[in-house]
Simulated assay, not measured.
Amino acid sequence: MTDGKDGDSAGFVARHRPGRDRDALVAQAADRADEIPMLRDSLAGRPGNLVPLTEEALALAGLRQLLGPEDAVPALLRLGARAAMAAGATVTPAEPPLRVDLGPPGAIELPRGRERPTGLTPRRLVEACHAALATRDRIALDLFAQVPVDRIARQPPAPEERIYGLAHAQGLQALLRGDAAGNQLLLQAIQGCNDTALAPAARDYAQFIVSPEIELALLHRDPDAAQFDKALRNALVLHRRYWSELRPNPGEAQDSDPAGFIALGPLAWAAMRHDQGLPVGIRSDYLPQGLVDGAV
């Protein structure tokens, strides 16, 4: 494992150094690993726990990418993707219950016709979509196609949802069903990332994380390998800067947040590009290489 920009090379972007020691991160991983089966077992009676399950699974995936074993990462990303998309799909009008496989002990049934689950946002759907694309998880992607994205935003929508979040999630949905309108929605979203109506912390996140991943979505089929690799490298460097240098809350570092240890958007589009038979010339601690290559 390498840390920080000093570990970079022409074809490699190194991870930032966490601000907590390894023992503290190992303890955090153990706590999250204990939480996941309890949340999964609670879903029959408390389907709202799909969103916390998503959060715990994606966080543990980040910690496993940092600490190992890396081969645990794909299953955690799939679980997080399916849980979030299932939460979104339950918002559809009442009809036969939704059956979804979230791992042992097997498929569960969830009621439909629910209100938007607390904590589910367009951004969470985008993260889940990236996790599903990175792991080639057809179950999660099929669930995403059922989600009424316009009903997932808060009411009234938060500025980041109104300005770019809804367009981003809807653009991905359209892109995945082969609708050319997806590109226009993604262009709308990327333009919104610079909107001065966003609060400073929200604009930082949009510019450092969201905008670069949308650029990769728009470029992932581009035969120009140099252009894609330039955008991928830029996205990874900005990802590192966001998680290691910026402080959205004054005085509070975020360099040990598990969300920073995997670059989900860049990972998704690198994996998709690989599956198009196009080269990906940048590697990184932020990108599980087995997922980029489709080997796991």
Rank of each mutant, 00 (worst) to 15 (best):
R123N: 07
C129A: 12
L66Y: 15
G113F: 13
A84K: 08
P52M: 03
L77P: 05
L53H: 06
A87E: 04
A44E: 13
A86Y: 13
A59R: 10
A33D: 12
A61K: 01
N49R: 14
A44N: 03
A89F: 13
P105Q: 08
L39A: 05
P93I: 07
R112K: 14
E95A: 14
N49H: 15
G106P: 00
A128L: 01
P93E: 15
V73K: 08
M38V: 09
L58M: 13
L66M: 13
A59C: 06
A30F: 04
V73R: 08
T118R: 11
L125T: 10
E109Y: 03
V100M: 11
T54I: 00
P47M: 02
T90N: 13
E56I: 00
A72D: 15
A27D: 14
A87N: 04
Q28I: 00
Q28K: 00
A83Y: 12
L67G: 02
G113C: 05
L79W: 13
L98A: 02
D34P: 00
D41E: 14
L50A: 01
A75Q: 10
L120H: 11
P69N: 07
M85S: 01
T121N: 01
G113V: 04
L102R: 08
L102C: 10
P117N: 06
R123A: 06
P37D: 05
T121K: 04
R78C: 02
R116T: 05
A86F: 13
D34W: 13
R82P: 03
E127N: 07
Q28N: 01
A29R: 02
A107S: 15
M85A: 06
L39I: 08
G119Y: 10
G103F: 14
D41Q: 12
N49I: 08
D71N: 14
T118D: 15
V126I: 11
G68A: 11
L67V: 05
